[in-house]
Simulated assay, not measured.
Amino acid sequence: MSAIPRAPLILGLAGLIPFVWGAVTVLLPDLASWTARTLGGRFAGPYVMLFYGAVILSFMSGVLWGFAARLEGAQASTGYALSVIPALWAFFMTGGGPTGSAISLIAGFIGILGLDWLFWRHGAAPEWWMSLRLALTAVVVTCLTIGVFF
């Protein structure tokens, strides 16, 4: 795996902000109260992580769709079919309460690593892709776990 280019790294790290903010507001109830009063309840605690997590899984479907477009024949068809799984997962598996939704998102983010690897292995994703995805997923799963267990 090669070095992650600066722009994807910075944008990927910036994309972690809602997850990290959600985890911090779970751990610091006073900050959660301030956030709820100032920005609204959906920007604090598990709520920001759950809503944003569903959005990001859907976004990742689009990324994988783009990777599928780099493949040909049966591989492309399979890639397109696989690329919609994260969005469908987010749609069907969240909404059943904060704990169940967070656990489903954790499973979804871990599961998408398998799809990332598959596209990467077939040369549809950049060489550095797995380095970026592993790092970002570790932070996301940690934050969601804080939302579940704290």
Results as ranks from 00 to 15, higher is better:
136 L>D: 05
112 I>H: 11
117 W>M: 12
115 L>F: 10
116 D>K: 08
117 W>Y: 14
124 A>Q: 10
139 V>N: 06
138 A>W: 03
109 F>N: 15
132 L>C: 03
124 A>R: 09
119 F>T: 09
137 T>W: 02
131 S>G: 05
112 I>T: 15
138 A>F: 04
134 L>A: 13
115 L>S: 07
138 A>S: 10
119 F>E: 03
129 W>G: 00
119 F>D: 04
134 L>D: 01
128 W>I: 07
130 M>S: 14
123 G>C: 06
130 M>L: 15
133 R>Q: 10
131 S>V: 07
111 G>Y: 02
133 R>D: 07
126 P>S: 08
130 M>F: 14
135 A>E: 00
127 E>P: 04
111 G>H: 03
118 L>I: 00
138 A>T: 13
112 I>M: 14
135 A>I: 08
124 A>T: 12
124 A>N: 12
137 T>E: 11
112 I>N: 05
132 L>E: 06
118 L>R: 02
127 E>S: 10
137 T>S: 15
121 R>A: 14
122 H>Y: 07
124 A>C: 11
117 W>Q: 15
114 G>H: 09
110 I>D: 03
129 W>T: 06
118 L>F: 00
127 E>M: 05
135 A>V: 10
134 L>V: 15
128 W>M: 10
139 V>G: 06
122 H>Q: 07
133 R>A: 13
110 I>E: 04
135 A>K: 03
133 R>V: 09
122 H>F: 06
116 D>H: 10
110 I>M: 08
130 M>E: 06
119 F>I: 05
123 G>N: 09
118 L>P: 00
123 G>W: 08
133 R>S: 12
134 L>N: 06
121 R>S: 14
114 G>E: 14
121 R>H: 14
111 G>L: 02
130 M>K: 08
116 D>N: 10
116 D>M: 02
130 M>D: 03
114 G>W: 01
125 A>V: 10
117 W>E: 13
139 V>Y: 09
128 W>F: 14
132 L>A: 13
112 I>V: 15
111 G>A: 01
130 M>H: 10
126 P>A: 15
120 W>R: 01
113 L>W: 01
133 R>K: 09
131 S>E: 02
136 L>R: 06
112 I>R: 11
120 W>M: 01
136 L>A: 14
112 I>Q: 15
112 I>Y: 05
137 T>V: 15
122 H>V: 04
109 F>A: 12
113 L>F: 01
135 A>S: 07
110 I>T: 15
118 L>M: 03
126 P>Q: 15
123 G>K: 04
136 L>V: 06
138 A>L: 11
111 G>V: 05
112 I>K: 13
118 L>D: 00
121 R>E: 11
137 T>P: 08
116 D>F: 04
135 A>N: 00
112 I>W: 05
126 P>L: 13
133 R>E: 04
109 F>V: 15
128 W>N: 03
121 R>Y: 09
129 W>D: 05
123 G>Y: 12
124 A>L: 12
126 P>C: 09
109 F>G: 12
119 F>S: 01
139 V>F: 07
110 I>K: 02
132 L>H: 13
137 T>I: 07
122 H>T: 08
129 W>K: 00
121 R>M: 04
130 M>C: 09
